[in-house]
Structure formats: C-alpha cells, structure tokens
C-alpha cells in the first residue's frame, strides 16, 4: 500500500513549474526526496499537505483525497521553518495544538521535550534555527503519527543532532505501519537509512527507485582519459574529465568493466554521485 500517491500532478508557479509528477510513497518505509535547491521539493510537499493546490492531477493520502482534514490526525509534519507566532512559547503552542489531535500523547511529548533539551517557557523568537527545527519535530512526533513528512529537517542542525535525528527516525521505523517521507539536499543523510529514493530536478521526476536497486546498479568508474572512447562514453550517464583521468556514473552491470579490472577503479555510487551526474550530465 502507498501512503502517498501523486498521479500526473502539474503545477504552474511564478517562473517555475512542476510537470507531470507521479510519486508513490510506500507504507512502512523511509522515502528520501532529493534534488538540488529550487527543484520543486518544497512545492511538492506543500501540495501533498494541501497548502498549495495542483493545477492538474490528483493527490492521495492513505487512499483518500488529500483535502480531507481528518487525514492529518495521522500525519506529523516538519517544514523548512517553524511557521508559528514568534511570541509563543512551547507551553502556549502545546495548549493550542495538543487538543487538536486524538492521538496526542503527553508522555511522549515530555520524553521528546527532555530529549531535545528544549525550554518550555521561552519565546520562540529567542530560539536558534536548530531549536526551532527540534520544536517542529517535537510537535510532529507527539501524537504518534503514522506518516511523517519533513522538508529539509536536517538543514541548520549541528552534526551531532543530525545523527541523533537519523537514529531517531530509524527507531520510529521499528513500527511497521510507519512511513517517512523527507526531502533533503544533503544526500548523506539518506545513504544509510532510506529505503526508496525519489529524485526531482527542474520540476520533473528524474528517478524513483529502491535504495537496494541503486546500490546494486549504480557505480562510479574511474580510469585514464585515453581509455574513454565514444563507445565507452555512451555507456555512462555522465562523465567528468580532468587532466588526471575521468570519473563516470554507470547504471547497469559493472561486470562490463571486469576485463579492464587493472586499469579502472569501480566503486559503489553514492546518492550524491548520482545526483551530481544526473543534474550535470557530461561536461
């Protein structure tokens, strides 16, 4: 089953458009949403949450149209910023938000409040960016959501909390009904924990694959420039050449290069490699 489904969604915005997006976010897994800045990640997330409306196509959450407000009982969200009154404290926010969720869990709230080391009575305007992010996260998790959607949650976090966040997400995934969808342009966040990857560039879906497939089929080939003829070049998704040699992204069977074993280096491609070469192509 898919927790989120976008079918042929198009959206025209000022100087920018999303073209025919079809995305599936399977239940029970972590799906990473990657792409360069300005590729349409936030817009897509805002459309899923019914903040923006698609011009064409349909968006489904838990198999229902995403405009049904009650669906949000099961969703925890974190946006790139904390859209909250800056004069509010966490205490006031809680007074406002807690009664709205049927599944609100005070114990869980206090646990995270303590874990994230957040002040209960300090005004949000005195919070650092990292604290605001933690505050978003606190309210996203305290009602035990089935689906957690996040827009660049690791931006502005220090490396330590970043790692703690990743650990936390993995802990949440022990519950098999849980689904996580999060966007990031820092792909190292996803290398270890993502099950599926959706890659968007310039408003279009470039790739949608399971992480297992990516790890199996994408390789980085490094070799001497003189080896690189037209035939070989056509095998690659992208090539970068320097005076010292070439680095290329290969999708498919790396055993093709077994005969050159002594002349090339074959490595597993990271998401960053894939994003880089797919965005840039060959130079």
């Amino acid at each position: 089953m898919n927790t989120v489904e976008l079918n042929h969604v198009s959206k025209e915005l000022k100087g920018f458009s999303l073209k025919d997006l079809s995305i599936k976010v399977p239940q029970g897994y972590i799906t990473g949403f990657i792409g360069p800045n300005g590729s349409g990640k936030s817009t897509t997330i805002h459309m899923i949450m019914d903040i923006l409306k698609p011009d064409q196509g349909e968006i489904k959450l838990f198999d229902s149209p995403n405009t049904e407000a009650q669906l949000k009982q099961k969703i925890g969200f974190v946006y790139d910023e904390l859209y909250m009154y800056e004069n509010f404290t966490i205490k006031k926010m809680k007074a406002f938000i807690a009664p709205l969720y049927d599944g609100w869990d005070d114990q869980l709230f206090n646990k995270y409040l303590h874990e994230f080391d957040l002040p209960f009575r300090k005004k949000l305007k005195h919070f650092s960016k990292g604290m605001k992010m933690k505050c978003s996260l606190l309210f996203a998790l305290a009602h035990n959501p089935e689906f957690i959607i996040m827009d660049e949650p690791t931006a502005g976090l220090d490396p330590i909390f970043r790692r703690e966040l990743i650990d936390l997400l993995q802990e949440l995934m022990v519950d098999e009904k849980r689904t996580i969808f999060f966007s990031t342009h820092t792909t190292t966040d996803l290398d270890h924990i993502a099950d599926y990857i959706v890659f968007i560039n310039k408003g279009e879906i470039v790739m949608q694959k399971s992480m297992a497939d990516i790890q199996e089929y994408f390789h980085i080939i490094k070799g001497r420039s003189d080896m690189l003829d037209q035939d070989m070049r056509s095998l690659f998704l992208g090539v970068r050449e320097t005076a010292q040699g070439f680095t290329a992204l290969l999708e498919g069977d790396s055993s093709l290069f077994d005969e050159f074993k002594n002349d090339v280096i074959i490595e597993k491609a990271t998401l960053e490699d894939i994003m880089y070469f797919k965005t840039k192509g060959s130079n």
Partner: peptide, 19 residues
C-alpha cells in the same frame, strides 16, 4: 531480531535488512 529491529541496530535501511 525482526528485520526492522535489525535495520535499526545496524543503522541500515529497512529494505536492506528485508532483502
């Protein structure tokens, strides 16, 4: 351990332990 717990312990994705 269940595949989800194993994934958590090894810090790999669920799909990896599942596979």
């Amino acid at each position: 351990p269940s595949m989800r717990v194993l994934a958590k312990q090894l810090k790999v994705s669920v799909i990896t332990s599942k596979r």
